Amino acid sequence: MKKGSHHQICENASIWQILFLFSLIFLIDSTSHASVSDFCAANLKGPDSPLGYTCKKPAGVTVSDFVFSGLAKGGNTTNIISVTPAFVAQFPGVNGLGISMARLDLAPGGVIPFHTHPGALEVLVVTRGFDSGFVSSANLVYLKALHKGEIMVFPQGLLHFQVNVAKIHSNAFVSFSSTSPSLQILDFALFANDLPSELVMQTTFLELATIKKLKGVLGGTG
């Protein structure tokens, strides 16, 4: 073997040894920080953003960040309905995980009006029945009287609602594909704003008197 070739082989071996050493250091470093990257418990004192909250420092994370007891107790339905959220603002441990929950409680006659979650799909698990449905983008209606133990899914962004037609309270648990699902209620979007009533009339085909009445009830102006 030529002397130059032997030198080249040794040089290549040294390069591979260096690369292996760097890989080993990276692996050890990644393993030592695994407990940090497993989760990102929300630092609720920090800024919120579309990507979520910043992470708490590991030393400040406790088991309480991963436990939320607020859904165990029924909400106050004095105002017909009650929604108890377990979003990231109440449940820091879900930060960055793309999931959250809520509890719905409806008094007899309670209605959760047409609304949508633009950034999340919703799965509803019924514990005491009510009617629920959604409308597709093709204006097809999917309506069902739901009973205890049944599950219904509401695709992301579609208008949906719940109505308790029974003479007893009803409730359900809801899961969202977001840690902080957005909410837009159709009635408020139409009548709790400051758009001129004449413009709302043009875009909804409702009578002007009806629009002004609804604006008065929901706090809109114009």
Rank of each mutant, 00 (worst) to 15 (best):
Asp131Val: 07
Asp131Gln: 13
Asp131Ile: 11
Ser132Pro: 02
Gly133Cys: 00
Gly133Tyr: 05
Gly133Asn: 01
Phe134Ser: 02
Phe134Ile: 04
Val135Asp: 01
Ser136Ile: 01
Ser136Gly: 04
Ser136Met: 02
Leu140Thr: 09
Val141Asp: 07
Tyr142Ile: 11
Tyr142Cys: 07
Leu143Gly: 04
Leu143Ile: 08
Lys144Gln: 14
Ala145Met: 07
His147Asp: 12
His147Asn: 13
Lys148Phe: 04
Lys148Cys: 06
Gly149Glu: 07
Gly149Gln: 03
Gly149Cys: 03
Glu150Tyr: 08
Ile151Met: 09
Ile151Pro: 00
Ile151Thr: 04
Val153Met: 15
Phe154Leu: 05
Pro155His: 10
Gln156Ser: 14
Gln156Lys: 15
Gln156Asp: 06
Gln156Ala: 13
Gly157Met: 11
Gly157Thr: 09
Leu158Arg: 09
Leu158Gly: 11
Leu159His: 09
His160Tyr: 05
His160Glu: 00
His160Leu: 04
Gln162Ala: 08
Val163Asp: 05
Val165Met: 06
Ala166Gly: 09
Lys167Trp: 03
Lys167Val: 05
Lys167Glu: 11
Lys167Gln: 14
Ile168Glu: 12
Ile168Tyr: 07
Ile168Lys: 13
Ile168Gly: 04
His169Lys: 12
His169Cys: 06
Ser170Trp: 02
Asn171Gln: 10
Ala172Glu: 06
Ala172Asn: 06
Phe173Arg: 08
Val174Ser: 01
Val174Trp: 05
Ser175Leu: 01
